[in-house]
Design a binder for these strands. Sequence first.
DNA 1: TACCAGGAGAGCG
DNA 2: CGCTCTCATGGT
Length: 292
Amino acid sequence: MTPSRSPASNRISWPVEFYHLDATLDSGQVFRWQPSGNGWTGIVGRRWLQLRVEVNTLHAETVEPVADWNWLRNFLQLDVELMTVLNTFPTEAPMQAAIDACHGLRLLRQDPWECLASFILSSTKQIVQIRQIITLLCERCGEPVFTPPGFPAAYAFPTPDRLAQLSEADLRACKMGFRAPYLLQAARAVAEGRINLAQLRGLSVDDARIELLRLAGVGRKIADCVLLFAYGFPEAFPVDVWIMKGLKQLYFPNRRVKPRKLQEFAQTHFGPHSGYAQQYLFHYLRNHWKPS
DNA sequence: TACCAGGAGAGCG
DNA sequence: CGCTCTCATGGT
């Protein structure tokens, strides 16, 4: 275990292997990170920070000193041995191509509420637009956080309690359209304790999914995104339009495959870390593949 | 201009 | 069930 407790400092460095920060922060699992110099800036919880990787070292810098960095190690999932995960993937051509296209891509471990809210806002939106909506939402409704001199103002992701007090019109002003009532209902469900996001950690993936599916505006795809990106269920396999088209063409050319069958195939074919494989496939399809 | 976006839900037959 | 339509908004 790398020492995470040390004299409080606003900087820390960790040794890393195969950590492709660019691919990771720009792969559609998080929406608030921005390129900055040779690294990235973003918010985790209530803290602004800057990240960069040089060779086999990951550097992090916050505004205020930090005594315990475990929150960041957890967000970055530094204890995951990537090669062990990749070695469980099937050794067929498309999967290997996906690995080669973005070797070092990682799954992060996000805050459940931020992840849930973000993906409620993601439906039928391009990633650039999802970023826009979330940026607006945070600027208007989130608590300001400290940033270093010379950097623009930044905001924490708004809490369920804060959003629960707003009106649908307030949210529509953030350009989220028909997703506004969904986000508002989800915020109120969490704020009023009708769903307990922390409690989902102790459930099986199937039971946790059932809980998430109770929320309006949350279907199988969005639920699986939250199960994978926030709770770390390794078998959660979100099937979006890219994955749908890609799997059909790569694995079932010239055949009719029902969505149910495709989900079943994905879960078995890609092994125990099918969710990780999904992220590699998604990144590969989105950046190196044209649907036909 | 037309089309589509890391979907979901309601209304059909 | 399984299909189609709608929802709001902006990028390409």
